[in-house]
Amino acid sequence: MSSKTIRHQHPAYRDDIGDLVTRRPVPGPAVEQIDPFLFLNHHGPQTYGRNNRGLPFGPHPHRGFETVTFILEGSLAHRDSGGHESVIHAGGVQWMTAGSGLVHAEVSPQSFLESGGPLEILQLWVNLPSRLKMTPPRYVGLQKEAIPALPLDDGKGVVNLIAGEWHGSRGPFESLTGVFMSTIALAAGGQVSFDGVRDRNVFLYVVRGAIRIAGEAARQHHLIELNEDGDSVDIEADSDAFLLFGHAQPIGEPVVAHGPFVMNTREEIQQAVRDYTNGKFGAMG
């Protein structure tokens, strides 16, 4: 079995949203997407004081893709036009299929606005193929306790299994397109390998720490683009590290994005704008 190797390391560029520290590795100057992974925002880490304004993501629409949100520190209140509502705390994940169209808001709960505290959140956009872009919207939010935390054999790390299968366990989220998704915590010297990645695109973002991929150093706050060859991804931590790791079959279709809409053609984008303007995405309760 051969290991995938590093093709390029894409730095996450600062693009703060008000007082919210934000880094974005994709899309970037040298990478538009790692098909089907379209977009990643890394908010924080930072600490909010008492009586803060919290997260700024009031009601806004989406169509044509999915959002996967990882709450690393703090908490996140979600509401959408499909009637879903939740508050997810540190270690939890929410997976929203925008599909044919949804309006949602992601803000800080009242308790966080009043008391403040640490905050760190990742949001990943995952594309849908044309046959699924108009699928009915859905939402699942799960707390940390519902996500399998699988210890590594060497005792130096944990794989938090979000979607897909690994070592006989299955993640609680069911991807429409067979996406594997996880977060990984490694202590210095910890090692982990993932096989079954030939002909699949790997998404690997180093949230913190320093690691090696097939022996080559990979840096913090970088999206690590891997070469297509190889059957496995072999990771070793040089320091304590935390990673976002997923892989998926590439879709291989045209991508036309306009703000919160991701479709295959310009005409479909124009239709999405009309449908949203005409209230076809529903309204927040």
Rank of each mutant, 00 (worst) to 15 (best):
R63W: 05
P45K: 13
D238G: 02
Q46V: 06
A217F: 06
R138N: 13
M1E: 13
R24S: 11
P109Y: 10
D234M: 07
F245M: 11
F261V: 05
D154K: 08
P59S: 13
G58R: 15
V93Q: 01
I251K: 11
L223W: 00
I162H: 09
P11H: 02
Y139R: 03
I269P: 02
P27W: 07
E114A: 15
L223M: 03
N201V: 12
D238H: 10
E114M: 10
L243I: 06
R63V: 03
R138E: 04
S108P: 08
W125G: 00
E267Q: 15
P129V: 12
L122V: 06
G18L: 13
E225T: 03
L226K: 01
P11F: 00
V202I: 12
I121G: 00
F173Q: 13
L176M: 14
N52F: 07
Q123M: 05
R266W: 10
L223V: 00
S3M: 14
A283C: 04
S3Y: 14
S3P: 01
D234L: 03
E32M: 14
L226M: 06
R23Y: 14
R138W: 12
A272H: 05
D15F: 10
P137H: 12
E228T: 11
G116N: 07
G83T: 11
L243F: 03
G171K: 01
L186A: 09
P250I: 09
K133F: 02
H221A: 15
P36C: 10
H78P: 01
E253S: 08
V87P: 01
V87S: 02
G91T: 03
G101P: 02
Q191K: 15
S81G: 11
V256W: 05
I211E: 00
E32Q: 14
G116D: 04
R23D: 06
V262C: 04
A12R: 03
T183D: 13
G285L: 11
M181K: 04
I71Q: 05
